[in-house]
Design a protein around this nucleic acid. Structure first.
Lengths: 247, 247
DNA sequence: TCCATGGCGATTGTGCACAATGCATGGGGG
DNA sequence: CCCCCATGCATTGTGCACAATCGCCATGGA
Protein backbone atom coordinates (compact mmCIF):
# COMPACT_ATOMS: atom_id res chain seq x y z
CA UNK A 1 0.00 0.00 0.00
CA UNK A 2 2.76 2.36 -0.76
CA UNK A 3 1.47 5.64 -2.12
CA UNK A 4 2.98 5.79 -5.57
CA UNK A 5 6.27 4.18 -4.91
CA UNK A 6 5.85 1.09 -7.02
CA UNK A 7 6.72 2.86 -10.20
CA UNK A 8 5.22 5.91 -11.69
CA UNK A 9 2.35 4.86 -13.93
CA UNK A 10 2.62 7.35 -16.70
CA UNK A 11 5.62 9.09 -15.31
CA UNK A 12 9.17 7.83 -15.53
CA UNK A 13 8.91 4.13 -15.84
CA UNK A 14 12.59 3.66 -15.52
CA UNK A 15 13.87 5.36 -12.43
CA UNK A 16 17.53 5.02 -13.29
CA UNK A 17 20.45 4.25 -11.03
CA UNK A 18 19.59 6.97 -8.55
CA UNK A 19 17.46 4.85 -6.21
CA UNK A 20 20.16 2.25 -5.95
CA UNK A 21 22.70 4.81 -4.91
CA UNK A 22 20.43 6.37 -2.34
CA UNK A 23 19.58 3.00 -0.92
CA UNK A 24 23.21 1.99 -0.80
CA UNK A 25 24.19 5.10 1.09
CA UNK A 26 21.23 4.81 3.37
CA UNK A 27 22.18 1.31 4.42
CA UNK A 28 25.84 2.17 4.80
CA UNK A 29 24.94 5.13 6.98
CA UNK A 30 22.63 2.99 9.06
CA UNK A 31 25.39 0.47 9.63
CA UNK A 32 27.92 3.16 10.56
CA UNK A 33 25.31 4.63 12.86
CA UNK A 34 24.78 1.35 14.72
CA UNK A 35 21.16 1.22 13.70
CA UNK A 36 22.01 -1.98 11.85
CA UNK A 37 24.43 -3.84 14.08
CA UNK A 38 26.53 -6.68 12.69
CA UNK A 39 24.55 -9.83 12.28
CA UNK A 40 21.33 -8.06 11.41
CA UNK A 41 19.44 -9.92 8.75
CA UNK A 42 18.65 -7.90 5.67
CA UNK A 43 15.55 -9.49 4.23
CA UNK A 44 14.99 -8.55 0.62
CA UNK A 45 11.26 -8.09 0.75
CA UNK A 46 11.39 -5.99 3.89
CA UNK A 47 13.97 -3.70 2.35
CA UNK A 48 11.99 -3.55 -0.86
CA UNK A 49 8.93 -2.38 1.02
CA UNK A 50 10.89 -0.01 3.23
CA UNK A 51 12.48 1.73 0.27
CA UNK A 52 9.52 1.35 -2.04
CA UNK A 53 11.47 -0.41 -4.74
CA UNK A 54 11.38 -3.79 -6.39
CA UNK A 55 13.15 -6.78 -4.99
CA UNK A 56 15.50 -6.93 -7.94
CA UNK A 57 16.80 -3.52 -7.08
CA UNK A 58 17.31 -4.51 -3.47
CA UNK A 59 19.22 -7.52 -4.64
CA UNK A 60 21.58 -5.41 -6.68
CA UNK A 61 22.30 -3.19 -3.73
CA UNK A 62 22.92 -6.16 -1.46
CA UNK A 63 25.28 -7.57 -4.02
CA UNK A 64 27.20 -4.35 -4.10
CA UNK A 65 27.34 -4.22 -0.33
CA UNK A 66 28.62 -7.75 -0.27
CA UNK A 67 31.29 -6.82 -2.78
CA UNK A 68 32.40 -4.12 -0.38
CA UNK A 69 32.51 -6.61 2.49
CA UNK A 70 29.85 -4.68 4.34
CA UNK A 71 27.32 -7.44 4.29
CA UNK A 72 27.83 -11.13 3.77
CA UNK A 73 25.55 -13.18 1.59
CA UNK A 74 25.15 -16.89 2.06
CA UNK A 75 23.41 -19.01 -0.44
CA UNK A 76 19.73 -19.49 0.27
CA UNK A 77 20.28 -17.92 3.64
CA UNK A 78 20.13 -14.29 2.72
CA UNK A 79 22.23 -11.30 3.62
CA UNK A 80 23.35 -10.15 7.05
CA UNK A 81 25.40 -7.19 8.16
CA UNK A 82 28.94 -8.51 8.16
CA UNK A 83 30.97 -9.03 11.28
CA UNK A 84 34.59 -8.35 10.44
CA UNK A 85 37.07 -10.32 12.46
CA UNK A 86 39.52 -8.64 14.76
CA UNK A 87 42.26 -9.40 12.33
CA UNK A 88 40.35 -7.88 9.46
CA UNK A 89 39.60 -4.79 11.51
CA UNK A 90 43.27 -4.33 12.25
CA UNK A 91 44.21 -4.83 8.63
CA UNK A 92 41.66 -2.29 7.50
CA UNK A 93 43.14 0.33 9.75
CA UNK A 94 46.63 -0.63 8.68
CA UNK A 95 45.63 -0.16 5.06
CA UNK A 96 44.05 3.16 5.89
CA UNK A 97 47.23 4.37 7.52
CA UNK A 98 49.18 3.40 4.45
CA UNK A 99 46.86 5.21 2.07
CA UNK A 100 46.07 8.25 4.16
CA UNK A 101 49.69 8.85 4.99
CA UNK A 102 50.28 9.05 1.26
CA UNK A 103 47.31 11.34 0.82
CA UNK A 104 48.61 13.73 3.43
CA UNK A 105 52.04 13.64 1.91
CA UNK A 106 50.67 14.50 -1.48
CA UNK A 107 48.59 17.33 -0.08
CA UNK A 108 51.44 18.80 1.90
CA UNK A 109 54.02 18.34 -0.82
CA UNK A 110 51.95 20.11 -3.43
CA UNK A 111 53.97 23.27 -3.55
CA UNK A 112 54.28 23.82 0.15
CA UNK A 113 50.72 24.94 0.71
CA UNK A 114 47.32 23.79 -0.37
CA UNK A 115 45.37 25.33 -3.14
CA UNK A 116 43.07 28.11 -1.96
CA UNK A 117 39.99 26.31 -3.17
CA UNK A 118 40.99 23.12 -1.42
CA UNK A 119 41.66 24.94 1.82
CA UNK A 120 38.28 26.53 1.53
CA UNK A 121 36.45 23.28 1.05
CA UNK A 122 38.30 21.88 4.00
CA UNK A 123 37.37 24.84 6.13
CA UNK A 124 33.72 24.55 5.25
CA UNK A 125 33.74 20.88 6.01
CA UNK A 126 35.27 21.41 9.43
CA UNK A 127 32.58 23.96 10.17
CA UNK A 128 29.89 21.44 9.30
CA UNK A 129 31.54 18.83 11.41
CA UNK A 130 31.86 21.14 14.37
CA UNK A 131 28.24 22.09 14.06
CA UNK A 132 27.12 18.48 13.97
CA UNK A 133 29.15 17.71 17.05
CA UNK A 134 27.94 20.82 18.79
CA UNK A 135 24.30 20.12 18.14
CA UNK A 136 24.67 16.55 19.31
CA UNK A 137 23.71 15.05 15.96
CA UNK A 138 25.63 11.85 16.31
CA UNK A 139 24.54 10.37 13.00
CA UNK A 140 25.68 13.43 11.10
CA UNK A 141 28.91 13.55 13.08
CA UNK A 142 29.76 9.99 12.13
CA UNK A 143 28.90 10.57 8.50
CA UNK A 144 30.90 13.76 8.32
CA UNK A 145 33.90 12.32 10.10
CA UNK A 146 34.12 9.72 7.36
CA UNK A 147 33.67 12.42 4.78
CA UNK A 148 36.62 14.34 6.16
CA UNK A 149 39.04 11.59 5.32
CA UNK A 150 37.44 11.14 1.96
CA UNK A 151 37.63 14.84 1.27
CA UNK A 152 41.36 14.87 1.89
CA UNK A 153 41.77 12.06 -0.59
CA UNK A 154 39.71 13.90 -3.16
CA UNK A 155 41.72 17.05 -2.66
CA UNK A 156 44.90 15.11 -3.24
CA UNK A 157 43.68 14.55 -6.76
CA UNK A 158 44.13 10.80 -6.59
CA UNK A 159 40.88 9.34 -7.80
CA UNK A 160 42.02 5.75 -7.59
CA UNK A 161 43.29 6.08 -4.04
CA UNK A 162 40.10 7.87 -3.14
CA UNK A 163 38.08 4.96 -4.42
CA UNK A 164 40.09 2.49 -2.40
CA UNK A 165 39.83 4.63 0.67
CA UNK A 166 36.09 4.88 0.23
CA UNK A 167 35.69 1.16 0.70
CA UNK A 168 38.16 1.11 3.56
CA UNK A 169 36.31 3.84 5.41
CA UNK A 170 33.08 1.94 5.10
CA UNK A 171 34.75 -1.15 6.43
CA UNK A 172 36.26 0.70 9.35
CA UNK A 173 32.89 2.12 10.26
CA UNK A 174 31.60 -1.41 10.32
CA UNK A 175 34.62 -2.56 12.32
CA UNK A 176 33.98 0.18 14.83
CA UNK A 177 30.35 -0.82 15.09
CA UNK A 178 31.39 -4.43 15.57
CA UNK A 179 34.11 -3.90 18.12
CA UNK A 180 33.29 -0.70 19.88
CA UNK A 181 34.34 -0.58 23.48
CA UNK A 182 31.88 1.99 24.84
CA UNK A 183 30.21 3.82 22.04
CA UNK A 184 32.55 6.63 21.27
CA UNK A 185 32.38 8.59 18.01
CA UNK A 186 34.26 7.25 15.04
CA UNK A 187 36.62 10.18 14.91
CA UNK A 188 37.44 13.16 17.01
CA UNK A 189 36.62 16.34 15.14
CA UNK A 190 39.31 18.18 17.06
CA UNK A 191 41.98 15.93 15.63
CA UNK A 192 40.60 16.57 12.17
CA UNK A 193 40.97 20.24 12.81
CA UNK A 194 44.57 19.90 13.83
CA UNK A 195 45.37 17.89 10.74
CA UNK A 196 43.79 20.53 8.56
CA UNK A 197 45.74 23.25 10.32
CA UNK A 198 49.01 21.46 9.73
CA UNK A 199 48.14 21.04 6.08
CA UNK A 200 47.11 24.63 5.80
CA UNK A 201 50.43 25.69 7.26
CA UNK A 202 52.26 23.48 4.81
CA UNK A 203 53.85 21.46 7.59
CA UNK A 204 54.09 18.09 5.92
CA UNK A 205 55.73 16.19 8.71
CA UNK A 206 53.33 17.39 11.35
CA UNK A 207 50.31 16.60 9.19
CA UNK A 208 51.59 13.15 8.46
CA UNK A 209 52.29 12.40 12.08
CA UNK A 210 48.93 13.79 13.19
CA UNK A 211 47.11 11.64 10.67
CA UNK A 212 48.89 8.49 11.74
CA UNK A 213 48.31 9.28 15.39
CA UNK A 214 44.69 9.99 14.67
CA UNK A 215 44.10 6.68 12.94
CA UNK A 216 45.98 4.79 15.61
CA UNK A 217 43.92 6.50 18.23
CA UNK A 218 40.69 5.48 16.53
CA UNK A 219 41.89 1.92 16.28
CA UNK A 220 43.08 1.95 19.88
CA UNK A 221 39.64 3.01 20.99
CA UNK A 222 38.27 -0.31 19.79
CA UNK A 223 37.97 -3.43 21.83
CA UNK A 224 40.15 -5.54 19.61
CA UNK A 225 40.80 -8.49 21.82
CA UNK A 226 39.21 -11.69 20.68
CA UNK A 227 35.49 -11.14 20.91
CA UNK A 228 34.37 -11.09 17.31
CA UNK A 229 36.35 -13.91 15.83
CA UNK A 230 36.00 -14.75 12.19
CA UNK A 231 34.64 -18.28 11.96
CA UNK A 232 31.39 -17.09 13.45
CA UNK A 233 28.06 -17.80 11.90
CA UNK A 234 26.68 -15.79 14.73
CA UNK A 235 23.20 -16.58 13.69
CA UNK A 236 23.88 -19.94 15.21
CA UNK A 237 24.94 -18.16 18.35
CA UNK A 238 21.61 -16.49 18.69
CA UNK A 239 19.56 -19.31 17.23
CA UNK A 240 21.11 -21.98 19.38
CA UNK A 241 23.33 -21.59 22.38
CA UNK A 242 26.22 -23.76 21.33
CA UNK A 243 29.24 -21.90 22.57
CA UNK A 244 32.18 -22.43 20.20
CA UNK A 245 35.09 -22.26 22.56
CA UNK A 246 35.46 -19.22 24.75
CA UNK A 247 39.12 -19.60 25.59
CA UNK B 1 38.95 -23.14 -23.37
CA UNK B 2 35.24 -23.13 -23.00
CA UNK B 3 34.27 -22.49 -19.43
CA UNK B 4 31.51 -25.01 -19.62
CA UNK B 5 31.97 -26.67 -16.32
CA UNK B 6 30.22 -29.75 -15.16
CA UNK B 7 27.06 -27.81 -14.51
CA UNK B 8 26.63 -26.70 -18.04
CA UNK B 9 23.38 -28.57 -18.41
CA UNK B 10 20.09 -26.93 -17.98
CA UNK B 11 19.14 -29.85 -15.85
CA UNK B 12 20.92 -28.54 -12.80
CA UNK B 13 18.42 -26.17 -11.34
CA UNK B 14 20.69 -24.47 -8.87
CA UNK B 15 24.25 -24.25 -10.00
CA UNK B 16 25.60 -22.17 -7.16
CA UNK B 17 28.05 -19.31 -7.26
CA UNK B 18 30.72 -21.29 -9.08
CA UNK B 19 29.71 -20.38 -12.63
CA UNK B 20 29.76 -16.69 -11.80
CA UNK B 21 33.28 -16.90 -10.51
CA UNK B 22 34.52 -18.90 -13.48
CA UNK B 23 32.88 -16.48 -15.86
CA UNK B 24 34.32 -13.51 -14.04
CA UNK B 25 37.82 -14.87 -14.23
CA UNK B 26 37.40 -15.92 -17.80
CA UNK B 27 36.42 -12.43 -18.86
CA UNK B 28 39.15 -10.81 -16.80
CA UNK B 29 41.72 -13.12 -18.35
CA UNK B 30 40.41 -12.41 -21.81
CA UNK B 31 40.74 -8.69 -21.21
CA UNK B 32 44.26 -9.00 -19.85
CA UNK B 33 45.08 -11.20 -22.81
CA UNK B 34 43.91 -8.59 -25.34
CA UNK B 35 41.27 -10.91 -26.69
CA UNK B 36 38.74 -8.38 -25.48
CA UNK B 37 40.25 -4.98 -26.22
CA UNK B 38 38.88 -1.84 -24.58
CA UNK B 39 35.67 -0.73 -26.17
CA UNK B 40 34.47 -4.21 -26.98
CA UNK B 41 30.77 -4.51 -26.44
CA UNK B 42 29.74 -7.21 -24.03
CA UNK B 43 26.26 -8.17 -25.12
CA UNK B 44 24.38 -10.02 -22.44
CA UNK B 45 22.72 -12.57 -24.64
CA UNK B 46 25.90 -13.42 -26.49
CA UNK B 47 27.76 -13.98 -23.25
CA UNK B 48 24.87 -16.02 -21.89
CA UNK B 49 25.03 -18.29 -24.87
CA UNK B 50 28.81 -18.48 -24.88
CA UNK B 51 28.97 -19.51 -21.24
CA UNK B 52 25.79 -21.52 -21.27
CA UNK B 53 24.17 -19.59 -18.47
CA UNK B 54 21.14 -17.42 -18.06
CA UNK B 55 21.12 -13.74 -18.79
CA UNK B 56 20.56 -12.89 -15.15
CA UNK B 57 23.82 -14.54 -14.25
CA UNK B 58 25.64 -12.65 -16.96
CA UNK B 59 24.18 -9.47 -15.65
CA UNK B 60 25.51 -10.13 -12.19
CA UNK B 61 28.98 -10.74 -13.53
CA UNK B 62 28.88 -7.59 -15.60
CA UNK B 63 27.79 -5.66 -12.56
CA UNK B 64 30.72 -6.99 -10.61
CA UNK B 65 33.11 -6.17 -13.43
CA UNK B 66 31.72 -2.66 -13.55
CA UNK B 67 32.24 -2.34 -9.81
CA UNK B 68 35.89 -3.19 -10.41
CA UNK B 69 36.13 -0.56 -13.15
CA UNK B 70 36.96 -3.24 -15.69
CA UNK B 71 33.89 -2.65 -17.78
CA UNK B 72 31.67 0.37 -17.93
CA UNK B 73 27.93 0.09 -18.06
CA UNK B 74 25.80 2.81 -19.53
CA UNK B 75 22.10 2.85 -19.09
CA UNK B 76 20.22 1.16 -21.91
CA UNK B 77 23.44 0.99 -23.84
CA UNK B 78 24.98 -2.06 -22.34
CA UNK B 79 28.44 -2.91 -21.14
CA UNK B 80 31.76 -2.35 -22.87
CA UNK B 81 35.28 -3.15 -21.84
CA UNK B 82 36.40 0.00 -20.09
CA UNK B 83 39.00 2.35 -21.46
CA UNK B 84 40.87 3.84 -18.54
CA UNK B 85 42.21 7.32 -19.12
CA UNK B 86 45.90 8.00 -19.08
CA UNK B 87 45.47 9.71 -15.77
CA UNK B 88 43.68 6.74 -14.30
CA UNK B 89 46.34 4.39 -15.60
CA UNK B 90 49.04 6.42 -13.93
CA UNK B 91 47.12 6.55 -10.70
CA UNK B 92 46.60 2.80 -10.71
CA UNK B 93 50.31 2.22 -10.98
CA UNK B 94 51.00 4.81 -8.33
CA UNK B 95 48.61 3.02 -5.99
CA UNK B 96 50.25 -0.28 -6.80
CA UNK B 97 53.65 1.09 -5.92
CA UNK B 98 52.32 2.30 -2.62
CA UNK B 99 50.76 -1.02 -1.71
CA UNK B 100 53.39 -3.34 -3.10
CA UNK B 101 56.19 -1.42 -1.48
CA UNK B 102 54.45 -2.06 1.80
CA UNK B 103 53.97 -5.72 0.93
CA UNK B 104 57.64 -6.16 0.22
CA UNK B 105 58.54 -4.36 3.41
CA UNK B 106 56.35 -6.62 5.43
CA UNK B 107 57.74 -9.70 3.77
CA UNK B 108 61.33 -8.66 4.24
CA UNK B 109 60.85 -7.38 7.76
CA UNK B 110 59.27 -10.57 8.99
CA UNK B 111 62.23 -11.80 10.99
CA UNK B 112 64.86 -11.17 8.38
CA UNK B 113 63.96 -14.04 6.12
CA UNK B 114 60.80 -15.47 4.71
CA UNK B 115 59.03 -18.44 6.09
CA UNK B 116 60.17 -21.71 4.48
CA UNK B 117 56.71 -22.48 3.20
CA UNK B 118 56.35 -19.02 1.70
CA UNK B 119 59.72 -19.29 0.00
CA UNK B 120 58.68 -22.61 -1.39
CA UNK B 121 55.43 -21.34 -2.83
CA UNK B 122 57.33 -18.48 -4.37
CA UNK B 123 59.86 -20.82 -5.90
CA UNK B 124 57.22 -23.01 -7.40
CA UNK B 125 55.45 -20.02 -8.83
CA UNK B 126 58.59 -18.72 -10.47
CA UNK B 127 59.10 -22.11 -12.02
CA UNK B 128 55.62 -22.03 -13.49
CA UNK B 129 56.17 -18.55 -14.79
CA UNK B 130 59.48 -19.46 -16.37
CA UNK B 131 57.92 -22.45 -18.01
CA UNK B 132 55.08 -20.39 -19.44
CA UNK B 133 57.52 -17.87 -20.83
CA UNK B 134 59.73 -20.61 -22.16
CA UNK B 135 56.97 -22.41 -23.95
CA UNK B 136 55.68 -19.19 -25.45
CA UNK B 137 52.30 -19.39 -23.77
CA UNK B 138 51.63 -15.70 -23.65
CA UNK B 139 48.20 -16.00 -22.05
CA UNK B 140 49.56 -18.07 -19.22
CA UNK B 141 52.52 -15.76 -18.84
CA UNK B 142 50.31 -12.75 -18.42
CA UNK B 143 48.06 -14.53 -15.98
CA UNK B 144 50.96 -15.79 -13.92
CA UNK B 145 52.75 -12.48 -13.89
CA UNK B 146 49.72 -10.97 -12.25
CA UNK B 147 49.55 -13.88 -9.88
CA UNK B 148 53.13 -13.25 -8.79
CA UNK B 149 52.30 -9.88 -7.34
CA UNK B 150 49.18 -11.26 -5.76
CA UNK B 151 51.12 -14.13 -4.26
CA UNK B 152 53.53 -11.76 -2.57
CA UNK B 153 50.59 -9.92 -1.04
CA UNK B 154 49.08 -13.17 0.16
CA UNK B 155 52.36 -14.25 1.68
CA UNK B 156 52.57 -10.98 3.54
CA UNK B 157 49.51 -12.11 5.43
CA UNK B 158 47.57 -8.94 4.68
CA UNK B 159 44.22 -10.06 3.38
CA UNK B 160 42.80 -6.59 3.06
CA UNK B 161 45.75 -5.24 1.14
CA UNK B 162 45.65 -8.34 -1.02
CA UNK B 163 42.05 -7.63 -1.87
CA UNK B 164 42.82 -4.06 -2.83
CA UNK B 165 45.79 -5.15 -4.88
CA UNK B 166 43.66 -7.70 -6.67
CA UNK B 167 41.48 -4.99 -8.12
CA UNK B 168 44.46 -2.82 -8.91
CA UNK B 169 46.18 -5.59 -10.80
CA UNK B 170 43.10 -6.16 -12.88
CA UNK B 171 42.94 -2.50 -13.65
CA UNK B 172 46.59 -2.35 -14.60
CA UNK B 173 46.15 -5.26 -16.95
CA UNK B 174 43.37 -3.31 -18.57
CA UNK B 175 45.47 -0.17 -18.62
CA UNK B 176 48.26 -2.08 -20.31
CA UNK B 177 45.86 -3.43 -22.87
CA UNK B 178 44.51 0.05 -23.47
CA UNK B 179 47.81 1.87 -23.74
CA UNK B 180 50.32 -0.69 -24.82
CA UNK B 181 53.06 0.65 -27.04
CA UNK B 182 54.05 -2.52 -28.92
CA UNK B 183 52.60 -5.54 -27.26
CA UNK B 184 55.11 -6.45 -24.65
CA UNK B 185 54.30 -8.77 -21.79
CA UNK B 186 52.75 -7.25 -18.68
CA UNK B 187 55.73 -8.09 -16.54
CA UNK B 188 59.21 -9.38 -17.00
CA UNK B 189 59.61 -12.73 -15.30
CA UNK B 190 63.30 -12.08 -14.78
CA UNK B 191 62.55 -9.07 -12.64
CA UNK B 192 60.18 -11.18 -10.61
CA UNK B 193 62.94 -13.62 -10.03
CA UNK B 194 65.30 -10.93 -8.80
CA UNK B 195 62.70 -9.62 -6.39
CA UNK B 196 62.17 -13.08 -5.02
CA UNK B 197 65.90 -13.58 -4.62
CA UNK B 198 66.24 -10.37 -2.65
CA UNK B 199 63.36 -11.41 -0.43
CA UNK B 200 64.82 -14.83 0.02
CA UNK B 201 68.10 -13.30 1.08
CA UNK B 202 66.31 -11.06 3.54
CA UNK B 203 67.57 -7.93 1.84
CA UNK B 204 64.69 -5.59 2.51
CA UNK B 205 66.06 -2.51 0.85
CA UNK B 206 67.04 -4.28 -2.33
CA UNK B 207 63.67 -6.00 -2.58
CA UNK B 208 61.84 -2.77 -2.09
CA UNK B 209 63.88 -0.95 -4.66
CA UNK B 210 63.57 -3.78 -7.16
CA UNK B 211 59.81 -3.82 -6.77
CA UNK B 212 59.50 -0.09 -7.28
CA UNK B 213 61.81 -0.22 -10.28
CA UNK B 214 59.86 -3.11 -11.68
CA UNK B 215 56.52 -1.33 -11.43
CA UNK B 216 57.96 1.85 -12.85
CA UNK B 217 59.42 -0.12 -15.70
CA UNK B 218 56.05 -1.67 -16.50
CA UNK B 219 54.42 1.72 -16.42
CA UNK B 220 57.17 3.23 -18.51
CA UNK B 221 56.61 0.61 -21.14
CA UNK B 222 53.17 2.05 -21.80
CA UNK B 223 52.33 4.70 -24.28
CA UNK B 224 50.91 7.13 -21.81
CA UNK B 225 50.70 10.24 -23.86
CA UNK B 226 47.22 11.37 -24.67
CA UNK B 227 45.90 8.93 -27.20
CA UNK B 228 43.28 6.93 -25.40
CA UNK B 229 41.34 9.65 -23.76
CA UNK B 230 38.23 8.88 -21.84
CA UNK B 231 35.34 10.43 -23.75
CA UNK B 232 35.65 7.90 -26.54
CA UNK B 233 32.77 5.71 -27.57
CA UNK B 234 34.89 4.05 -30.21
CA UNK B 235 32.01 1.76 -30.88
CA UNK B 236 31.20 4.40 -33.37
CA UNK B 237 34.61 3.88 -34.88
CA UNK B 238 34.22 0.21 -35.59
CA UNK B 239 30.51 0.27 -36.18
CA UNK B 240 29.08 -3.02 -35.11
CA UNK B 241 31.30 -5.63 -36.66
CA UNK B 242 32.62 -6.91 -33.40
CA UNK B 243 32.91 -10.58 -32.71
CA UNK B 244 33.86 -11.29 -29.11
CA UNK B 245 34.04 -14.92 -30.06
CA UNK B 246 37.56 -16.01 -29.20
CA UNK B 247 37.44 -18.81 -31.70
C1' DT C 1 13.57 -36.69 29.27
C1' DC C 2 16.13 -36.69 25.08
C1' DC C 3 16.84 -37.52 20.24
C1' DA C 4 15.54 -38.52 15.48
C1' DT C 5 12.32 -37.57 11.74
C1' DG C 6 8.96 -35.48 8.92
C1' DG C 7 6.16 -31.54 7.69
C1' DC C 8 5.60 -26.45 7.28
C1' DG C 9 6.39 -21.59 6.61
C1' DA C 10 9.44 -18.19 5.09
C1' DT C 11 12.93 -16.56 2.00
C1' DT C 12 15.84 -16.75 -1.71
C1' DG C 13 17.05 -18.11 -6.59
C1' DT C 14 15.74 -18.28 -11.40
C1' DG C 15 13.48 -18.16 -15.76
C1' DC C 16 10.32 -15.79 -18.72
C1' DA C 17 7.88 -12.35 -21.08
C1' DC C 18 7.06 -7.66 -22.03
C1' DA C 19 8.02 -2.81 -22.00
C1' DA C 20 11.30 0.93 -22.80
C1' DT C 21 15.13 2.74 -24.87
C1' DG C 22 18.73 3.81 -28.13
C1' DC C 23 20.88 3.11 -32.54
C1' DA C 24 21.00 2.36 -37.40
C1' DT C 25 18.86 2.81 -41.71
C1' DG C 26 16.06 4.55 -45.40
C1' DG C 27 13.18 8.05 -47.44
C1' DG C 28 11.84 12.72 -48.27
C1' DG C 29 12.67 17.59 -48.51
C1' DG C 30 15.61 21.73 -49.06
C1' DC D 1 24.07 16.65 -52.94
C1' DC D 2 23.38 17.03 -48.11
C1' DC D 3 20.62 17.17 -44.06
C1' DC D 4 16.66 15.97 -41.19
C1' DC D 5 13.17 13.04 -39.60
C1' DA D 6 10.46 8.85 -39.18
C1' DT D 7 10.47 3.92 -38.85
C1' DG D 8 12.44 -0.80 -37.53
C1' DC D 9 15.51 -3.61 -35.04
C1' DA D 10 18.47 -5.05 -31.52
C1' DT D 11 19.39 -4.81 -26.69
C1' DT D 12 18.65 -3.71 -22.15
C1' DG D 13 15.59 -2.98 -17.99
C1' DT D 14 11.95 -4.65 -15.06
C1' DG D 15 8.20 -7.03 -12.96
C1' DC D 16 6.12 -11.39 -12.02
C1' DA D 17 5.44 -15.97 -10.78
C1' DC D 18 7.15 -20.41 -9.59
C1' DA D 19 10.46 -23.67 -7.83
C1' DA D 20 14.16 -24.91 -4.69
C1' DT D 21 16.10 -24.61 -0.29
C1' DC D 22 16.68 -23.74 4.55
C1' DG D 23 15.47 -23.32 9.38
C1' DC D 24 11.97 -24.19 12.73
C1' DC D 25 8.68 -26.95 15.12
C1' DA D 26 5.63 -30.64 16.21
C1' DT D 27 5.26 -35.46 16.64
C1' DG D 28 6.67 -40.09 17.77
C1' DG D 29 9.81 -43.46 19.70
C1' DA D 30 13.58 -45.13 22.92
Amino acid sequence: MTPSTGTGRRGRKTAGPAPEEAMFRSIVDAIADRRLPPGTRLVEEQLAEAFGVSRARVRRVLLRLAEGRIVSIQRNRGAVVARPSVREAREVFQARRLIEREVVRLLAAGGGRMQPEAADRLRRHLAQEAQAVGSGDRAAAIRLSGRFHLLLAELSGQGVLTGLLETLIRRSSLAIAAHEAPHAPDCDAEEHKRIAQALDAGDAEAAERLMIDHLEEVERRLDLVAGGGEPIDLRRIFGRSLAPDPA
